[in-house]
Write a protein that binds this DNA or RNA. Structure first.
Lengths: 133, 133
DNA sequence: AGGAAAGTTGACGCATACGTAAACGTAACG
DNA sequence: CGTTACGTTTACGTATGCGTCAACTTTCCT
């Protein structure tokens, strides 16, 4: 394996982000790339986390929320207390996302209605034009 | 009808936002309440728009994006050029939302997997505890 | 008339999420 | 050995989305 880890530029290209963003995420403890000298090397784990971070962002979560949620995907056999706390957080998160999904479906439905109305209007205008020709 | 329009406080209570927020949205031309003297009165139209604004925010759209999208719900028989431009925007928006929905479904699936794993771990810990007792 | 209640317009403040420029390290290439 | 490329830290700058006074007006109550 030649691509066990990625340097910062490869990472940026792979995820379409800037170096600044990756360093920022590291500062916020969302990522923890290893160092080769002073250079960052991003592991498979970092890549998985970044994917989740970007996804979280698209769903409107703040970086701080995301930081906490990242643990959900790395439940590492800790204490029962910690694990169950994480699990509860996950339940909330799940409920959140399912609510968002429901709302999204409603919004899609409404938008489609509006578009049908608009399409009809456009069709009428097109007809008038044809008739006038 | 006594509730044809709402004053700012009623509007805030109805949508759980602050006066500052409503004034801010007006400044950004997302809302355009009528005036009674210098006081704002929010019409049915404003209420519909605010609902869409808040929804848009939950889906991670910026206020500026939302401002443009609001026209989608008020396609007011304008010029064909304008109307068709709005329609195109709507198509993009729709594609956006459906993509988001797909991603959301994927995310929900993954999270559920993680939770199943976590639940199992917790069950094992519970068993050990019972056995030890 | 006097004062609280509700609303208004500035104007500055602040957290989030980076952008951007400066100054420096280091490693390879010709 | 210079310089080009790539990366680093430090630090200040910036857009977004409001929060939070301050200073007034308007209205309604007593």
């Amino acid at each position: 394996m030649t691509t066990e880890t990625l340097n910062i530029r490869q990472m940026c290209d792979a995820f379409d982000v800037t170096p600044r963003t990756l360093r920022f995420y590291e500062a916020k403890e969302l990522l923890s790339p290893v160092r080769e000298g002073q250079k960052r090397l991003f592991t498979k784990r970092d890549r998985a986390r970044l994917k989740l971070i970007l996804r979280g962002k698209r769903f409107g979560f703040s970086l701080e929320e995301i930081r906490q949620l990242l643990d959900l995907y790395h439940m590492n056999d800790g204490q029962e207390a910690q694990l169950s706390k994480t699990y509860v957080l996950a339940e909330k998160h799940l409920a959140d996302m399912e609510a968002q999904k429901a709302e999204l479906e409603e919004a899609i439905g409404e938008l489609k209605e509006q578009m049908a109305w608009g399409a009809e209007k456009l069709a009428q205008l097109a007809k008038k034009k044809t008739a006038a020709a």
